[in-house]
Amino acid sequence: MSMMPSNMLPVQQVEDNSLGHFLYGLMSAFPLFFVPVLLSFWLNLIQKNVNPDSVLGSHLRWQRMSIIGLCPFFIAGYWLSPLWLSLPMYLLGVSWFSYRIFKGWISLNDGLAV
């Protein structure tokens, strides 16, 4: 009777996070007329086969909320007519969005959920 050695650990299935890396790459190209962000948002929304409780699922949710959260900054910046009021709003939104991209991408690279 052969016994399995006690030091053998169960094999964990590795999740493919390349989609998350690709979408973070598109999001980081937001200075290019915002088109890459819209493309990444659309690609994010059509992902139906990703488990929402997985690491990739948490990052897809993080990306969606980052893009949706950027919209109020840009809307407020648009409606604040003097440039000295609208420019800080745009800069605050871009800084916040950049932080979200950076934090999410680093977490995904480390294999951590956000």
Rank of each mutant, 00 (worst) to 15 (best):
M4A: 10
P88F: 05
I106F: 03
I67N: 03
S28P: 00
L60A: 05
G25N: 09
L19Y: 07
I75F: 08
W62M: 01
Q12N: 15
F73M: 01
S66R: 01
Q63T: 09
S6H: 13
Y99M: 07
N7S: 14
S66N: 10
M3D: 13
P88S: 12
L70C: 05
S86C: 15
Y99T: 07
A76K: 03
W42E: 03
F22P: 01
M1G: 15
P72M: 01
M8K: 12
S58V: 01
L45Q: 14
S98M: 05
M8R: 11
M4C: 12
P72W: 02
Y99F: 13
N44L: 05
A113D: 10
I68H: 01
P10I: 08
Q47P: 01
S6N: 14
D16W: 05
L26G: 04
K103I: 06
L32F: 13
L45H: 15
S54A: 06
R64Y: 10
P82G: 11
K48C: 02
D53A: 06
E15H: 04
P31E: 10
N44R: 06
Y78C: 05
W105S: 00
Y24S: 02
F34E: 03
W96I: 00
A76P: 01
Q47N: 07
L87T: 04
A113G: 13
I101A: 00
S66I: 05
R61T: 09
F30G: 02
Q63Y: 05
M4I: 15
L32W: 12
F97P: 00
P52L: 07
S28M: 03
Q63N: 11
I106W: 09
S66P: 07
L60E: 04
L60F: 05
I46D: 08
S54Q: 09
G77E: 04
L60Q: 04
Q13L: 14
I75M: 12
V37H: 06
M3V: 14
G111T: 07
N51Y: 05
G111R: 09
L83P: 07
G20P: 04
S28D: 11
S6I: 15
G111Q: 09
F33C: 11
L19H: 02
G57P: 03
Y24D: 02
D110E: 11
E15I: 00
L38G: 10
W42G: 09
N44M: 05
I46L: 09
A76T: 11
F102L: 05
F73N: 00
Y90P: 03
G77T: 06
D110Q: 09
L87F: 09
N17P: 06
Y24E: 04
Q47I: 08
L112A: 10
D16H: 06
Q63E: 12
V114G: 06
N17Q: 14
N7R: 10
